[in-house]
């Protein structure tokens, strides 16, 4: 929707440096990756950027680089490319669980990991698994590059750690330790094309005997931001993820939830199901870790 007679600029810089200077020149500009969040919001009249800065011509933002110690995913890489990447599939099946839930085949051809993160939704399906696996965000600022752990990236619904004029370049996932695996599930009102009412991502590490040595539990859509719940992780660490441990983790997850009532789910419902999901997702992560 064009707002009356006003028009909006479109820029497509080829480098990060150019992108930063275009942003500096156009206060109120917004980054355009796949546009599957931004253009919908724009057409609904919820966002009125002075310019769109398309970042899909910047090579660093469009590449997946795997090395011995981890993988760097360019911010504008489309969901479909992430799900097809053999190293990502092997090391972070939980991230793939989340990314492949985003929208539909069409949406996954354009929607990006960076867009999912920078849109700042508490229900974003990729964010939980990134946090569970200890990912960090690489941010380009006029003063240079800085890194922020993903769990500190989303500050409030629609609000992120990016300052005006900054750009998310990539997300770095450290290679998982031995016997480590992740998993992600969400609950939606219908069976596809929907936004989570509650979600859980879990990453666990086992010792060779099968005892859990570390666990990270992240809950989504039940608080203003995705939440890392250390109490839930602590309930799993040092156990074999027996029923009692899972129950304690579920209680911790429900206790940490601070959901709202909305037309997609009530407070009571969301609080209950985030606990149920915690148990189920931890059990999936456990079976995957045992195969490692």
């Amino acid at each position: 929707m064009l707002h009356g007679m006003t028009t909006t600029r479109y820029e497509a810089p080829g480098t990060v440096a150019d992108a930063l200077s275009v942003m500096a020149a156009h206060p109120g500009a917004m980054i355009l990756a796949g546009g599957t969040d931004l253009l919908v919001q724009y057409q609904a009249g919820l966002r009125t950027p002075s310019a769109f800065i398309d970042v899909k011509r910047i090579p660093e933002l469009m590449a997946i680089e795997a090395d011995a110690s981890g993988v760097t995913i360019g911010a504008a890489v489309a969901a479909a490319d992430i799900c097809a990447h053999p190293v990502i599939r092997a090391w972070w099946p939980g991230l793939v669980d989340g990314v492949q839930l985003i929208g539909s085949t069409q949406i996954q051809g354009r929607g990006s990991l960076g867009g999912n993160l920078c849109n700042g939704s508490p229900a974003a399906d990729a964010t939980g698994a990134l946090i569970a696996s200890g990912a960090v965000a690489h941010i380009a600022a006029p003063s240079g590059v800085r890194t922020v752990p993903v769990e500190q990236f989303v500050l409030a619904p629609g609000k992120t750690a990016l300052a005006p004029g900054e750009l998310l370049v990539s997300v770095r996932l450290p290679k998982p330790a031995a016997h480590t695996a992740d998993a992600y599930q969400r609950l939606i009102p219908r069976t596809e094309m929907d936004i989570a009412v509650a979600s859980v991502a879990v990453s666990i590490t086992l010792d060779p005997s099968g005892l859990c040595t570390a666990a990270r539990v992240v809950i989504g859509a039940v608080a203003p931001t995705p939440l890392l719940v250390p109490e839930a992780g602590a309930a799993l660490a040092g156990t074999t993820l027996d029923a009692a441990a899972l129950e304690r983790a579920a209680l911790a997850a429900s206790a940490a939830a601070r959901p709202i009532d909305d037309k997609r789910g009530t407070v009571a419902y969301r609080t209950t199901v985030v606990g149920v999901l915690t148990k189920r997702v931890a059990a999936i992560a456990l079976s995957r870790a045992k195969e490692r």
Binding site: T191, E192, M193, D194, K263
Partner: peptide, 28 residues
Amino acid sequence: HENLVYDQKSGQPLSAGFYYDRIPTHLD
């Protein structure tokens, strides 16, 4: 799924459209 939900205080419809009204998809 479907219900055109109204805000009882303001009288505004909240769930207009295929997404908010949860029209069944192929998987449903």
